[in-house]
Write a protein that binds this DNA or RNA. Structure first.
Lengths: 347, 347
DNA sequence: GCCTGGCACTCGGTAGAATCGAGTGCCAAC
DNA sequence: GTTGGCACTCGATTCTACCGAGTGCCAGGC
């Protein structure tokens, strides 16, 4: 058997006509949610060939895994591989002027704590794209302590309020089984502040021994701060427009599955984090290896504040989502959000 | 025409047999989600009457608005009024021992900031009941300031961290258009603390005039704290198990509508707040006057910490929800959560 | 050798007819 | 007042026929 290699097939690319047909099928299917027939491609598209030609090309595209047929005598539907090719060859356009304007307006007028801004950003992104949006804000666990203060709630209950260099604030209850005097709390607060400033939650510090109230308070405070579970505290997830899930899929069961996934924030974070780590911006269907999201596509854009990776914005839609628009919107929002966060460090 | 009044009809109550039949219909319908026929009631129920008798009673119940027929020759379905009667005559049982155990375990082991506890409580309640749950935590806007501190993020950016008597903490960015020295910040922090301690966000305080850095910082800080939007900051909403919405209704469109409502937190808060204010614990169908939730029922239980109303826990399900279980679970969780919050004031 | 028009074939979707049966309303008899 | 009996209704289900979009294949043309 001759080892002759047909250039169009062995190379990753498709020949121009196949590519054009694939693109037409994808575009049409995204638009109509219906299988696309050869004649639709022949008339609608720009290629000047007959439907018979399109048909034979489609056979090849199907053999190579870019298209599939729901059943004989139906049109073709893109496979995940087909979408992948489409996305890879999409020259990333920018977002429309109206959308850009809306994004600009939003960040010009939004105010409040970072958490609120992230949450509202998620809603914005969802509104702009009509897909479900996810914003992940990663607090740097290596951020050092700027201030730690023990506040007296009542004689037995104190609140440890810690401010970190990245602007995040945590609070932890510190309880004793007997009353302490305000002056003991004030003294403990001074010591804690001195002890913790400049450290991170990962660094170990020398705590005083002894059983008098001040020492106990200091020990308790330090331990409660260091025992915070790293995952939950480190990342916040904001999901916007979960009702869009019900628009994207028509089976109630699929909707339920996707919503169930979205409820598990750790899952969502790790999925998006994986994508960011691998430098991927779009995951289609089962590319992320997540069974229940097999009919979904995820688009992400990283957030980098002052050079540090610090979260991401993402969109979740059906595999037949409008990739161009979604990617443009995610990019635009991530850029503006980054600028906002940098100009305005973790309000 | 004789003005004779039949006692059973004019009084609010139904005669015993009608009540029994109504109850049987409601129970059966909640169980099966199907219209209930007369024979099912006659056999299944405890009443020793024939289906023909049940039928004629059902005609009366339908005339009085407790039941309705999807179409001739189908069984009967309870109306909102029918559910209302059922709920009003439900003697509130307690939660099962297993559930009680789970709730107890949860509050015995849960740790962290209040916000996290409330969020996890919402998930718990949803898991226990398989309905979507809502937890509203109301921070007292009348809570006085325990401590206010200005922390130096960098030369132009300061963070105002305020601790309130109810244990809540807020942070606000304070920015100037020029650099300030750390000692100015420290001095401003001292003044702000002295100025604000004991006040509430509603009380007006006398701020220093003058253009030097310290006075400006103090003015800015006080104003940024007072300008916080009262609604958004005052109440936090935690929604658990939104995927349950997809289980409760079978039309994708209904699911979408309900999810859309749940996304509008202010709406949810005001709905629940209204119910609490009016001392209602169950709202069925259109009782709350909310079009898109016409096919839903809402169960709430108030939270009162140290005698002050401070939020609520709620459940949202279909009108054919298991009222007994839902109410018992909401009550049990609200009690335990109340105890937790009191014993452990706003960690 | 590639493209094209023609053609037989496939198969899901829709419409209509027939059927089934759960459930009703009514009535005469007890 | 209750009950068994009975005719009737009407949604749901099944079956059939049919339509048509779309295919695969092939012979003829450029």
């Amino acid at each position: 058997m001759a080892r002759r290699v047909k250039p169009e097939k062995s190379s990753a690319g498709l020949d121009a006509r196949k590519a054009a047909i694939l693109e037409a099928v994808v575009r049409e299917h995204i638009d109509t949610a219906q299988p696309v027939g050869s004649s639709a491609v022949a008339t609608h598209g720009e290629l000047a060939v007959s439907s018979a030609t399109v048909r034979s090309e489609m056979v090849a595209l199907e053999r190579d895994g870019y298209l599939s047929q729901p059943h004989t005598s139906a049109g073709r539907v893109p496979t995940d591989k087909g979408y992948r090719y489409f996305v890879d060859h999409l020259q990333g356009g920018a977002v429309g002027p109206v959308t850009q304007q809306q994004i600009g307006d939003f960040f010009r007028t939004v105010r409040g704590e970072v958490e609120d801004v992230l949450s509202q950003t998620s809603t914005l992104l969802s509104r702009l794209t009509s897909y479900t949006s996810v914003v992940v804000g990663a607090a740097q666990s290596f951020a050092s302590v700027l201030s730690a203060q023990l506040v007296n709630l009542d004689a037995r209950h104190q609140l440890l309020v810690t401010v970190f260099a990245d602007g995040s604030v945590t609070k932890h209850g510190v309880y004793l089984d007997h009353d302490v005097t305000p002056s003991a709390v004030a003294e403990a607060s001074r010591q804690i502040n001195a002890l913790l400033i400049g450290t991170t939650v990962e660094s170990r510090v020398q705590v005083p021994s002894g059983s008098e109230d001040v020492a106990t308070l200091v020990r308790e405070s330090v331990s409660v701060l260091h025992d915070q579970r790293p995952t939950r505290e480190g990342e916040q997830v904001y999901i916007g427009g979960s009702s869009r899930v019900a628009e994207a899929f028509d089976g109630v069961e699929t909707v339920r599955q996707v919503l169930t996934i979205l409820e598990q924030e750790l899952l969502v974070v790790s999925l998006i984090q994986d994508m960011i780590d691998q430098g991927v911006s779009v995951a289609i269907g089962s590319e992320h290896g997540f069974e229940p999201l097999a009919s979904c596509a995820v688009v992400v854009a990283p957030l980098t504040v002052d050079g540090h990776p610090s979260g991401a914005v993402g969109l979740l839609g059906p595999t037949r989502m409008k990739y161009g628009e979604a990617m443009a919107a995610a990019r635009a929002v991530s850029q503006e959000l980054t600028r906002y966060l940098e100009g305005d460090p973790r309000v």
